[in-house]
């Protein structure tokens, strides 16, 4: 008698594995296939990778509440000094239709090569933050995220309101005043629907054409602080949190360009 539940549950498991509509059982488990079979070569080439959290750390929710709005935080473990700094961080989401999420370039003026953003995750996938230091070494941190449908999810909320606000930007500073010579945290909010081009209109059989931010340039008194190349994995209303080191008062400026050629910019004058 006691064996029966076991038999029963193993049969249910068999059904789960056999049933195609449940998706393949394998894709629910952490899986390196896409990485090994191409993504590694594409993004890193032959170079050696140092894995772990010594240089860079990535935090992501294991199970995402909203696949179209998955918060990611990349934290650097080394200060940005002219001698040693993180030059570039590339974000890769293995199983997204477009695995390239974004790349961020930093300078010693960034102070700290931290970057936080919100992304779309289309199916259970590893998310990778790949940091390249100025000595050419490659460091990688990864996290597995359970989310699905983030790229094809219909544009929710109020697209009309979003389109009316398109191109609007603002900086939010952490604190009222600037602290000179120190890394200051800021957040850049960009109003842009960041349409993926994967959201199909089933009635017209048309795909809503992709319309997304491709480049973000942030400078302080014309010295680059953070420059990003971005793709459709970035959530609607792109939002980036990062540091910069001001020498004194000055102008923080963001310039963005989208794939349809739209250009927008904003500046904010900051004083200590």
């Amino acid at each position: 008698m006691h064996r029966r539940p076991l038999v029963f549950s193993s049969l249910l498991l068999a059904i789960a594995l056999l049933s195609p509509s449940l998706g393949s059982g394998a894709s629910d488990m952490p899986d390196e296939t896409a990485w090994v079979n191409g993504l590694r070569a594409k993004f890193i080439g032959e170079k050696a990778i140092e894995e772990g959290n010594d240089v860079i750390e990535l935090s992501a929710p294991y199970r995402a509440e909203d696949p179209a709005l998955v918060p990611l935080q990349i934290t650097s473990r080394i200060p940005q000094t002219p001698e040693r700094f993180i030059r570039k961080i590339t974000l890769v989401i293995d199983n997204n239709p477009v695995p390239f999420g974004a790349s961020f370039e930093f300078t010693p003026d960034s102070g700290k090569a931290d970057i936080a953003m919100r992304v779309r995750v289309n199916s259970y996938s590893y998310v990778r933050a790949i940091a390249e230091t100025n000595d050419g070494k490659v460091h990688m941190a990864k996290a597995f995220v359970k989310a699905s449908g983030g790229c094809s999810a219909p544009i929710g909320g109020d697209l009309e309101a979003a389109m009316a606000r398109l191109g609007k930007m603002k900086f939010k500073m952490d604190g009222e005043r600037l602290t000179p010579q120190q890394p200051n945290l800021t957040q850049l909010l960009i109003s842009h629907p960041n349409i993926t081009g994967l959201q199909m209109n089933q009635i017209s059989r048309m795909v809503q054409p992709a319309h997304y931010v491709e480049e973000v340039k942030v400078s302080f008194n014309d010295r680059p602080v953070m420059t990003a190349q971005t793709d459709i994995a970035i959530s609607a209303d792109p939002n980036f949190r990062f540091y910069f080191v001001p020498q004194g008062q000055g102008e923080l400026k963001a310039e963005i360009r989208d794939n349809l050629g739209g250009r927008y910019s904003t500046t904010q004058t900051l004083t200590p």
């Binding site: 509509s21 449940l22 998706g23 449908g149 094809s152 999810a153 219909p154 544009i155 959201q199 199909m200 209109n201 089933q202 009635i203 017209s204 809503q208």
Partner: peptide
């Protein structure tokens, strides 16, 4: 809204 969501919903209903 129906047109924009149908493809996604069809997928989700099956899954």
């Amino acid at each position: 809204a129906m047109a924009a969501r149908a493809a996604f919903y069809i997928d989700k209903a099956s899954r």
